[in-house]
């Protein structure tokens, strides 16, 4: 058995593409930053950074993450301290609902393009930040920006383990074909009630609700520090 095969045999699941693997790592770090820990004073690392340290490096050091995750954490915490940047929502962001999507680039966003080309106005941009977006599986850019929460991460882990169990023996003509099969399952899963204790409701609704709550908290912490948050929910 090769090293790769041995690793695969031990892994709880294997994702169909490298992009999905990178997205999973991103999602994992996002969820860590949105989850309270003892080392960050029983608050989430994001809250710690915004309320206590005011320093991305200092907060990230407390988490003792592997190097690749540490770097992602620094980027996300620095972005939180700056109040957000639209560029940050593209790429590998979007959590569980987007884990099987290809990399999203700003120039692929037709709604943003239309706003920049034709409308050129703050109200339109603000509406765009809070409108479901086809590049993010109908999450809004603001919901993407705030990142994955702990409930979403737990749901995603369950789904990915289950899908791997069901699909690992199946062969596909191309990695993209496997991805499409995984994605069909992801959609079906997301529109059905979550199979998790203490939570009732469709997966997609739970995910959106958790992201909205985390966004509201983050805006509150940021404003207390005098940071103007680009993704602040509309009144």
């Amino acid at each position: 058995m090769s090293d790769g095969e041995a690793q695969q045999a031990e892994a709880p699941f294997v994702l169909p593409t490298q992009v999905a693997v990178a997205r999973y790592l991103q999602m994992k770090v996002e969820s860590i930053l949105n989850t309270p820990y003892q080392v960050t004073g029983e608050m989430s690392p994001v809250a710690h950074c915004l309320q206590e340290s005011g320093d991305a490096e200092e907060t990230a050091e407390l988490l003792n993450l592997p190097e690749d995750q540490h770097e992602i954490a620094i980027d996300l915490l620095e972005d939180a301290l700056e109040g957000g940047d639209l560029e940050e929502v593209y790429g590998l962001r979007g959590g569980a609902l987007n884990i099987l999507m290809p990399m999203a680039h700003e120039e692929q966003d037709r709604v943003l393009y239309a706003i920049e080309e034709e409308l050129e106005g703050a109200p339109e941009l603000s509406a765009f930040l809070h409108a479901p977006n086809e590049l993010f599986s109908a999450l809004t850019p603001a919901e993407v920006w705030v990142g994955t929460g702990k409930i979403e991460m737990a749901l995603a882990d369950l789904f990915l383990r289950q899908s791997w169990l069901e699909l690992k023996e199946k062969s596909f003509p191309a990695p993209g074909a496997a991805n499409t099969e995984w994605l069909s399952r992801l959609r079906l899963w997301s529109y059905n009630p979550a199979q998790v204790q203490n939570y009732r409701g469709r997966v997609v609704d739970l995910i959106k609700q958790e992201r909205r709550e985390n966004l509201a908290s983050r805006v509150e912490w940021s404003e207390a520090r005098g940071i103007d948050v680009m993704f602040k929910p509309l009144e």
Partner: peptide
Amino acid sequence: HRDFTGEYYVARD
């Protein structure tokens, strides 16, 4: 692109 490369945004375009 939809069925074999998984590039759904390219498929959309």
